Amino acid sequence: MIAASAALVVTGCQGDDGGDGVGSGTVAGSSSGAASVSVSPSGSAGGGVSEPGKGGASTSASASASTSASASASASSGSVGGAVEACAAAGLEAAARQAADRPDGTGTGAVVVGFTNVSGTSCVLGGHPSVAGAGNGSPEHNSPLAVTRTGSAPSVRVAPGGTAWVKLTFVQVQGEGDGYCVSGADPVVYPTLVVGLPGAGKHQVALDDGVFAECDDTVTATAVSLAKPS
């Protein structure tokens, strides 16, 4: 598979907003429980809190300890925690390549788009992308594709130099030459696509080994993920 070229953050062909799902700004972490509650190294609440002369531990203290332990476990597993800024458009570099797993046909079929964090600090991405065929000169000339979203869309923290991914699957072109669409529509070819992410701007991408050929102006898109799709 030939790797796609790094793409530009669009100037002439992009709008101001990204895709749908998560706004820009700060992602706040979870608050811990009461300070009077101790948590053992294994993450369980230790001892509870008792009033002088009382025998039983406080139920609310146990609940707070459970919440605190859960938040700590979430942070250690790589979930978004603490105050982490959403990724800025200027801090991302996008690139596209044909996917290994794509529908049968003679068009593009499917592509994988990677967004690499070049900002030097961790940032957050999330949601599903918007997709449009790039027009000439201004965003008004772009041709939006109808996006069918698949999968849940939790926010992910992208470390400096790390990459988050989406996969775009098109209605495949059939036949040789100019090809045809099963629906009866004419195939459409775009030299570049504009792929937007919620709160992270819109990015123009191209393929090193061809153009984006699709039918029916529709695309199925996965949510942003740290797992690279095939």
Rank of each mutant, 00 (worst) to 15 (best):
A200V: 03
S60L: 07
R102S: 04
V124T: 06
G107V: 05
V166M: 00
T11A: 11
G18T: 02
S74F: 08
N142P: 00
A75L: 13
G201L: 10
N142M: 08
V111L: 12
K202Q: 15
D104W: 03
L8R: 15
G78E: 04
D186F: 10
G33A: 07
G15N: 05
D16E: 15
P129H: 04
G18A: 05
P191Y: 05
A88V: 08
G184T: 06
D16S: 13
E214D: 07
P139F: 01
A213K: 14
A99M: 02
T222C: 04
T192W: 00
S77Y: 11
L226Y: 13
A35T: 09
K228T: 02
P103K: 00
G177K: 02
L145Y: 09
G105E: 05
A57G: 06
R149Q: 08
T116H: 05
D104Y: 07
E140Q: 14
V195A: 03
P154W: 00
G82K: 07
A34V: 08
G82H: 06
E176I: 06
V131Q: 01
P144M: 12
P229A: 12
V49D: 13
H203S: 03
P160D: 13
N136L: 08
G82P: 13
A223C: 07
C13K: 12
V211T: 15
A95C: 04
T218I: 04
G21M: 03
K54Y: 09
K54I: 01
S130M: 06
G55W: 15
P160H: 14
T150H: 00
A88S: 14
S24D: 11
G91S: 10
F170A: 02
S183H: 11
L207T: 11
V188H: 10
D20S: 13
V22E: 05
L125M: 10
S36N: 12
V39N: 09
S62A: 13
R102V: 10
A200T: 09
S77P: 01
V37A: 02
G53D: 10
S42Y: 13
V188I: 10
A3S: 14
R149L: 01
A221T: 01
E140S: 15
V166C: 00
T116G: 06
P198T: 03
